[in-house]
């Protein structure tokens, strides 16, 4: 299947970058055709500009050629993989901005005659989220897990009824040691290698 892997961490030598690489290896092992988008490396523009918003309102093609190209990748993706560090219970502004600018009408959804959103990502068979958290799992579950909600609920709603989701989180990252981190890298690679 065609997999699109989107990652967002400012440091190329970060653990998050290693997770993205492990995910990519796993997907390649199981024979998927993987395209990676490292948003920081690509110096992606994170915020919706007035011109972006005008195009959104007119349901016209995005004005930024980079955004059009990323939209084309999303249109053909069967697996969407997101790798990011959780900050303030959600994705970094960089990834949030990518969702806002790329997943526009004509890519992720369409508006029907009444102006209601109709899903357009029926071709996506699975959404995968891979994230690191500073807080422990219990705290995340009690308080909030908004990045997970965003990807497995809000984004999931613009996909088909049969779209599956996978969530892989490493919690309490500030106090985890090298063995746990390595084990999580393996877990990420193995679960990606099992995706059919």
């Amino acid at each position: 299947m065609k997999a699109l892997l989107v990652s967002a961490h400012p440091c190329a030598d970060s653990y998050s970058a290693a997770l993205a690489e492990a995910a990519r290896r796993g997907l390649v092992t199981s024979g998927h055709e993987v395209t990676t988008l490292d948003l920081y490396a690509a110096d992606f523009t994170a915020v919706m500009s007035p011109a972006d918003l005008d195009a959104y309102r007119d349901q016209a093609d995005p004005v930024d050629p980079v955004v059009r190209q990323h939209g084309e990748l999303v249109r053909h993706a069967e697996v969407l993989v997101f790798v990011y560090p959780t900050w303030w219970s959600g994705p970094p502004a960089m990834l949030k901005g990518w969702l806002e600018r790329v997943l526009v009408p004509g890519v992720a959804f369409t508006f029907d005659r009444q102006g209601k959103v109709q899903p357009a990502l029926g071709h996506v068979r699975r959404i995968v989220g891979i994230s690191t958290y500073g807080s422990p799992w219990t705290y995340i579950k009690l308080v909030n897990d908004n990045g997970r909600r965003l990807l497995t609920r809000a984004l999931r709603l613009t996909c088909g009824w049969r779209t599956a989701t996978t969530w892989l989180g490493l919690y309490s990252i500030d106090t985890t040691g090298e063995p746990e981190r390595r084990a999580f890298l393996d877990r990420v690679e193995h679960s990606m290698a099992k995706i059919r």
Partner: peptide, 14 residues
């Protein structure tokens, strides 16, 4: 947007 603060505002928090 996408059930949360726009990237601009999320960046202000970050």
């Amino acid at each position: 947007w996408w059930s949360g603060q726009p990237a601009m505002l999320k960046g202000w928090i970050d």
